[in-house]
Design a protein around this nucleic acid. Structure first.
Lengths: 105, 105
DNA sequence: CCCTTGTGGTTACTTTATGTAACCATATTA
DNA sequence: TAATATGGTTACATAAAGTAACCACAAGGG
């Protein structure tokens, strides 16, 4: 028998876990916190993350407004990714998780 | 050319994102924050999460000390999952993410 | 002119993770 | 005797991620 107080899931909460619950998302946001970075720099920072998936993640982060993509039209073309305000605040929230990690892991 | 300040990834940070970066992890911890719950209750709370994966996630959470499994030897056998101290503190950290979600999503 | 370099991708294919539905063991109840 | 309830487990299908080769572009060297 279920409890009477049938809790229900807040869609915002659900959506946030859908974002940070994807593989590599946390680390990507973490590595953009200090300063904007180029594609290759992120890739160098997280070597186990393939270019294919990194590109996919960056598109997702751009689409949900966490990251801004700035294509620099020099040659060779460079792309710089930076956190938006929204993204920077997500990064700050994730610092709580990192503090937990530092204490417990 | 890479920057001189070659940042390197803290393994604790990496590990924490390896935990919360798995599908459903955040929601499972979220739903255990109020009170301990049984297998079926978690499953009812997150209907799209299959029993197969839920069971797998609970084993992982138990193994990394975030969750405690308590098998109640009544019939039918019931299993109650509760957050450990470590898990409760992770939950508190995740509240920062949920607050972000509430503001930005 | 052709060849190599560096960037940020993309492609085709393999491997891993997750979803799905059926099944199981146990005891209680109808 | 059959159905119910719990917390799983199993075999198989689909989706996500890993891997390595490739591409476009211009710059620079020979």
């Amino acid at each position: 028998m279920q409890k009477e107080t049938q809790e229900t899931l807040c869609s915002k909460v659900e959506e946030s876990y859908h974002i940070i619950g994807k593989k590599w998302m946390g680390l990507i946001i973490h590595c953009l916190m200090e300063e904007p970075k180029r594609f290759g720099e992120i890739h160098a920072f997280i070597p186990d993350l393939s270019k294919r998936v990194l590109n996919e993640r960056m598109k997702e982060l751009e689409e949900c407004g966490v990251v801004l993509r700035n294509v620099i039209t020099e040659r060779p073309v460079r792309t710089e990714y930076s956190l938006t305000k929204k993204g920077a605040e997500l990064g700050k929230a994730l610092k709580a998780v990192e503090a937990w990690a530092d204490k417990w892991l």
